[in-house]
Design a protein around this nucleic acid. Sequence first.
DNA 1: ACCAGGACAATTTTT
DNA 2: TTGTCCTGGT
Length: 721
Amino acid sequence: MISPSMADELNEKQQQSVALNEDVNALVLAGAGSGKTRVLTHRIHYLVSAKNFHVDDILAVTFTNKAANEMKERLSELLRRPIGRMWVGTFHSLSHRLLRTHPVEANLSPTFQILDAQDQFRIVKRLMKENGVDETKFPIKQVQWFINQQKDEGILPHQINAEHNYFVKQSAKIFDLYEKHCQANDLVDFAGLLVKSYDLLKNNQSLLDHYQKKFCHILVDEFQDTNLIQYQWIKLLHAQHNHIFCVGDDDQSIYGWRGARIENIQKIENDFKPIEIIKLEQNYRSTGNILSASNAVIANNQNRLEKSLWTKSGDGELINVFNARTETEEAQYIVSEVEDQFNQGRNLSECAILYRSNAQSRVFEESLINRNIAYRIYGGLRFFERAEIKDAMSYVRLIEDTSDNIAFERIVNFPTRGIGLTTVEKIRTYAIEHHSDLFQSSISILDTLPARASNSLKAFIDLIESIKDKTQHLSLSEKIDSILLQSNLMNHYSNDKTDKAGSKKENLEELVSAAKQYNHEEGSEINETQGFIALATLDSSGDSNQSNQDCVQLMTVHSAKGLEFPVVFLVGLEEDLFPSRQSKDEQKLDEERRLCYVGMTRAMNTLTLSYASKRFIHGQSFYSMPSRFLDEIPINYLNYIKNSNNGISTKSRKYDPSQYTKMASTDSSMYSIGQVVKHAKFGLGTVVNCEGSGDSMRLQIKFKKFGTKWLISSYANLEIV
DNA sequence: ACCAGGACAATTTTT
DNA sequence: TTGTCCTGGT
């Protein structure tokens, strides 16, 4: 039943997964680099070509846009046809599609808008202000976070028991108001897309029947990353006559903090009986040493669904370990290694620098600029999240739909045109009283405003209407181009003195070309402009048209998941950085270890691990210990690089709290990190860091009442408590 | 409306 | 250290 080409491209286990009978559920535990995506796409191909299922009746869900795009591409190649309207996408984009198709049944207006994280933040902020919740006590971010967490668990405001916790109580109150606000304004946030599409099917038997019948096969990628609502979403769509095919790897679950439930992968065995479980353990990506080292690290986690990855390729090079003195030295060394690789004939794009947190990218960037090496940073501010792009998109949105209040608020006075807060407040009040949108309300209250404000507002309304009029027959990119000019945005940003490099102007130009390259699905329930607006919100990366120049790839380990590179530098392997400081408890530590595992297994041929002994964090230098993960790698896989400034980088102290203590207490003997001390003037405090030794040893102490200070231990006269 | 300067916070990951 | 937010001055 398997086509010859399939036999060529797939190993035995992969073939077995792909050609599983169509009437079973399946869970494929696919280790890193074992050809997970290949299995998924071939499975679809098999169902379509060998089993005669219709492509449009197959649902394939991924977690990220990147993965979705990749799958679409590969599928299109394999099936030799365009993707068209196939149901392949992220949970969020597929949910969005369901809601756009059945807005009324979902209790939404057909013009509902998606709320991105920034917009959500603003709304939460405003609601907190209006309702007297002190944002210094309850940071807006935390309240926003709380709300999203609840929604990801499918919890509604009134279901929250907040009796004993003031934060929860206040947050739940805001949550409730927020939900009402969204409902009243036809806004749906990310989590809301999932919740609402779930409810849509749950509360509508005939629709549910329809989709259960339609989707005869449901394939889920990265199953270990699904959260509660996503799991329920899948479970709801699953019926007697259709089947699921899930691919995942518990060792690569790195989104627990975002509500991903690693248990789902175990739960699936009970909830979707009968189910076939297949393990893919042959790794095609990495050399033996890299694989063995990675396996050794991940073996330290408890409660794994044991897999043992193996490879046919040889041992390859040893894994390099470099101990830099400072983060600058670390960057310089790594960049010089990149240069070496390049001189040996590697493309720059074959080299990746992976770090735990985005903040670490800066030093590498500086170093790369110094040496004039092209690089690309992933993450950080994404294209569609940039202020100038959001401004432009707000014009696009308001012109497309004048009832888009979020867009209205953003641009009513931008670029500034003399419409002040007072006027806006009047518009808001009128809108609430008359159940109207801000744009219509503006028209209604024109006569009641003072002449100045009235004129300005009238000019704005006329501007929007005139642009709308002039651009309605233009193509999407011409439309956006025209909007940029007429709104004066292009002019405004061209003259922006704070933007010396002119990158804002460039970004606006980039937006036009992004629009040019946007290809709209034919037969979609929304028009081209609306499709582009949704894309901007749902996939804010704006990646599609990135020039494929040859450049070094810089990204967090998280965003490297699913990728592979011949040469990988995994940097900043220090305690409190990787594993990160706030992940010290056992569960979180396991996730950090998985993250490290993910990072290491990105490497195909060459892997370099590095750490710095001293690092600047928020303008202060801290001594750091090598990451415990380094110690988890057997020494025979490692090659310690000689540091010319440092002598030989010996395998330094094992991670061990008592050693840590010893380091702090060298010579002066009695101080250790975490020690509570008393100072004659500053009172009680805790030692948080130390520097130097002997008489010159300095201690950083966090005092209860006086904040954090550096003191020289021999003068400070500290009393140990 | 705009700017400069100061206080202050934040440092994990993202659909 | 860096960036953001707010204030108060013009």
